[in-house]
Design a protein around this nucleic acid. Sequence first.
DNA 1: ATAATTGCAAAAGCTTTGCACGGAA
DNA 2: TTCCGTGCAAAGCTTTTGCAATTAT
Lengths: 146, 146
Amino acid sequence: MERKKERREKRNERASKLRRLGLRATPQRLAILAFLEGNRNHPSAEEIYQALKPRFPSLSLATVYGTLEILEQSGEIQVLTIDPERRRFDPDPTPHAHFYCQLCGRVFDLPRVQPALEKLPEEIEGFWVEKVSLSAYGVCPACRKR
Amino acid sequence: MERKKERREKRNERASKLRRLGLRATPQRLAILAFLEGNRNHPSAEEIYQALKPRFPSLSLATVYGTLEILEQSGEIQVLTIDPERRRFDPDPTPHAHFYCQLCGRVFDLPRVQPALEKLPEEIEGFWVEKVSLSAYGVCPACRKR
DNA sequence: ATAATTGCAAAAGCTTTGCACGGAA
DNA sequence: TTCCGTGCAAAGCTTTTGCAATTAT
């Protein structure tokens, strides 16, 4: 069974990543990292919490928020303010465009729009720019069909 | 005194605008419109409320929220989600870039960055785009000096 | 007159905080 | 053993809602 070994390795990678950031590798943090990894759904804190709850019955929403906070400060993830109702979290910290569907509320990546962002300088009209975000609002392909 | 006449005219313009939208021209709405007009501070609902409270002691926050909601739906203003803490309102409904200062929390217009937005089509990769917003985060000129 | 709008209070979310306990290093 | 991290409950905010009273038309 190679799968077991693979999982163990990924787990170790995540633990190392956390320790490299000066953080303790707790089961909760490892689970949140694992859930986020490769997740393109831009989940909210509540969604992460609900998804992990079955396997971590003692998990608390406060821990989820806390972990997401330090992961953002560490540059491992990015927080999106695209959804007017709640914060969304993106495991990919590199700048890229997002789309918010006003019908279903889902958030999508728009990787091909990215280039427009690259051209922005570190300084615009005296403002020091740390991060740029491009958000589009409208109707996603699935909702257009209905 | 020409000022009085001018104020009366502006007030009439706002009243007409409201009625054109099928809305009643109440003192509260006229005051909110007047406060927003030419206001480049991207105020929050609370800020609008506090600013108008002295002259409209009976004004309620619920009315402010309600008015802002219908003004947005009418296309008269735009709601910004750039501030992670609260919604900000912009009397200019046309798409333009914004800057959020992470130190003082103020929101600025970045009118010269606008062109980058113009190039975006109505449809991107199957997504129907109704609105695009470009937000930059960093430190504003005033805060850089300190 | 009458239908829309206001203001109040309460409710509904989302997110943060304080603190005692538990667990990683 | 030593702190860092967790979980719980409560609090803090922003925003929404229901409804009776008011007011624009």
